[in-house]
């Protein structure tokens, strides 16, 4: 901590009048780092310490247990369905919202964000009310022997709901800022609509799109509350990885619970690294686009 200096090497150049004495800088930095250590770093480390508490063999046994493998399969299946569906939706919604003017746009934006402000438990509850035994479609589903609640379809549907806004809300501000000039040029030159999207729009939005997909996937694999409500916790059948962690924990099988939790933690760390890389690429692409635009140079992709 002795090398804290002012930011003159990077970012805005701060004159002496616009910064604090070294001692204040040092104290504020130490306080901020201590806060993050207590709330982020210690809990993060605790997952791995607890996971290996009973040794490596217990760890391996916990993550290769047939019930754990079944949970991993279900979580992957859920993400493989939910992420592409909501990605396609996100692209369609962003296209409709950013390429055209229409009345009620801000209402539509608010509605797309809605799942973010609904408690996970309520996100599960609404599907019980629709598809549960005494729900609105319950009698119809029972008559046709279709099971949604306490079965895999319910888990997928609840995950679709909670991950609904991720891709759309990354793409909308990005595509709004980029405008439609590139697309208009391509169309004027005779390209078809779909061709324009693939050849012009997609290269422009690829980093934002990837960013949204990463966040969507993290939530799809990690969702707990909504999935917990509709799953019914049937081992080997309707248990996702987070639910499996809960069951092991409630059985006081702590080492196994943390071993399986460490897989999800590893996934979270991979997500953070991927997010950082994509952010850097997106910034670089934006700078390159800006310099192209000001210098009037040719577009290159």
């Amino acid at each position: 901590m002795s090398t804290i200096e002012d930011i003159s090497s990077r970012g805005p150049r701060l004159s002496k009048a616009a910064t604090e004495p070294a001692l204040v800088r040092w104290a504020l930095t130490a306080l901020a780092v201590a806060f993050l250590a207590v709330f982020l770093i210690v809990p993060l480390a605790a997952v791995f310490i607890e996971a290996f508490d009973k040794g490596v063999s217990v760890y391996i046994a916990a993550i290769t247990d047939p019930m754990a493998l079944a949970a991993i399969r279900l979580t992957l299946l859920t993400a493989v369905i939910a992420v592409p569906v909501n990605t396609v939706f996100g692209v369609l919604a962003a296209w409709a919202i950013t390429k055209f003017d229409f009345r009620g746009k801000s209402v539509l934006l608010a509605l797309i964000d809605l799942p973010f402000s609904v408690s996970p438990v309520i996100s599960g509850l609404i599907f019980i009310l629709l598809f549960g035994a005494s729900g609105f479609f319950g009698p119809f589903l029972a008559a046709h022997d279709i099971k949604i609640i306490f079965a895999v379809p319910g888990i997928v549907i609840a995950t679709l709901f909670v991950t609904f806004p991720f891709v759309a809300r990354e793409l909308i501000p990005l595509m709004d800022a980029q405008g439609s000039d590139d697309e208009q040029a391509a169309l004027a030159l005779g390209a078809g609509g779909f061709q324009t999207f693939i050849r012009v729009t997609l290269p422009n939005i690829k980093w934002g799109l990837l960013y949204g997909v990463i966040l969507c996937n993290a939530r799809a694999m990690g969702e707990f509350g909504a999935v917990s409500v509709v799953s019914g916790h049937i081992r080997g059948l309707t248990n996702t990885v987070p639910l499996h962690v809960e069951i092991l924990y409630n059985e006081y099988n702590f080492a196994a619970a943390f071993a399986v939790a460490s897989l999800l933690t590893f996934l979270a760390l991979v997500t953070l690294v991927a997010k950082a890389i994509v952010e850097r690429k997106a910034r670089a692409a934006m700078r390159a686009a800006a310099s192209r635009r000001t210098s009037g140079g040719p577009h290159e992709h």
Binding site: L40, L44, V47, L215, A218, G222, G225, L264, A268
Partner: peptide, 8 residues
């Protein structure tokens, strides 16, 4: 906290 599942 955005990336880590809440159960974990």
């Amino acid at each position: 906290p955005f990336a880590l599942p809440t159960a974990v």
